[in-house]
Simulated scan of single mutants.
Amino acid sequence: MTIFKPVFTAIALALVSASVVPSAHAGDTLLMQRARQAESMNLPKKGMSMADVERRFGSPTSKLDARGGGSRKQPVINRWMYPGYIVYFERSHVIHTVLNTPAGNNTHP
C-alpha cells in the first residue's frame, strides 16, 4: 500500500497543476491586453508634477486622502481619481497611473 501513496499523490498534484494552468494563461492574456491599452492611451506619465497633470488632464473627479509620510523611507502617497484611471503620486510627482478594472472593484485604491 505504501508504494501507491506517493504515486497517487504525484497524480493528484499533476491533475491539480493541469487545471490551474489554463486560468493562469487567461489571466496573463487579460493583463497583457490591459497593459497594451494603457500604453496606447494618453495618461499621466511617471515624473510629471501634480501641476502638470492638472494642467494637461484637468481636475480629478476626486483627490483621495494622502497615505504614508511617517518617515523618509515612507513618503507621502497621493491618489487622484479620473474617469477610467487613478494617478499615484510620491510627494508631488507621478509614480504610476493605473486603469480602473473592468469589474470596477478598485473603489478603495
Results as ranks from 00 to 15, higher is better:
residue 49 S to I: 04
residue 48 M to V: 05
residue 100 N to Q: 04
residue 12 A to S: 14
residue 14 A to L: 10
residue 98 V to P: 00
residue 33 Q to D: 13
residue 109 P to M: 14
residue 68 G to N: 10
residue 53 V to C: 05
residue 51 A to N: 13
residue 6 P to S: 06
residue 96 H to G: 02
residue 96 H to S: 11
residue 94 V to W: 00
residue 11 I to N: 09
residue 17 S to C: 12
residue 81 M to P: 00
residue 108 H to L: 14
residue 85 Y to N: 03
residue 86 I to Y: 01
residue 106 N to Q: 15
residue 29 T to A: 11
residue 76 V to R: 10
residue 75 P to N: 10
residue 51 A to K: 13
residue 63 K to E: 06
residue 63 K to N: 04
residue 24 A to K: 07
residue 41 M to W: 05
residue 44 P to M: 02
residue 60 P to Q: 02
residue 44 P to A: 07
residue 62 S to V: 13
residue 106 N to C: 12
residue 13 L to R: 04
residue 39 E to F: 02
residue 106 N to W: 06
residue 101 T to Y: 03
residue 8 F to Q: 11
residue 12 A to T: 13
residue 9 T to K: 07
residue 50 M to Y: 01
residue 47 G to W: 07
residue 97 T to I: 03
residue 1 M to L: 14
residue 25 H to N: 08
residue 3 I to M: 12
residue 19 S to M: 12
residue 32 M to H: 03
residue 60 P to I: 04
residue 43 L to N: 02
residue 7 V to W: 04
residue 61 T to K: 15
residue 24 A to Y: 02
residue 53 V to T: 03
residue 90 E to I: 05
residue 104 G to I: 06
residue 54 E to V: 10
residue 68 G to V: 14
residue 82 Y to A: 05
residue 15 L to M: 14
residue 46 K to V: 15
residue 33 Q to F: 04
residue 108 H to S: 15
residue 87 V to N: 00
residue 17 S to W: 06
residue 35 A to H: 10
residue 41 M to C: 07
residue 10 A to F: 03
residue 109 P to S: 14
residue 109 P to R: 12
residue 13 L to Q: 06
residue 41 M to T: 09
residue 3 I to G: 07
residue 26 A to R: 12
residue 32 M to G: 03
residue 86 I to L: 08
residue 79 R to L: 09
residue 4 F to R: 15
residue 98 V to L: 08
residue 98 V to G: 00
residue 106 N to K: 11
residue 60 P to E: 01
residue 95 I to N: 00
residue 60 P to F: 00
residue 87 V to R: 00
residue 48 M to F: 02
residue 91 R to Q: 14
residue 92 S to Y: 14
residue 19 S to T: 12
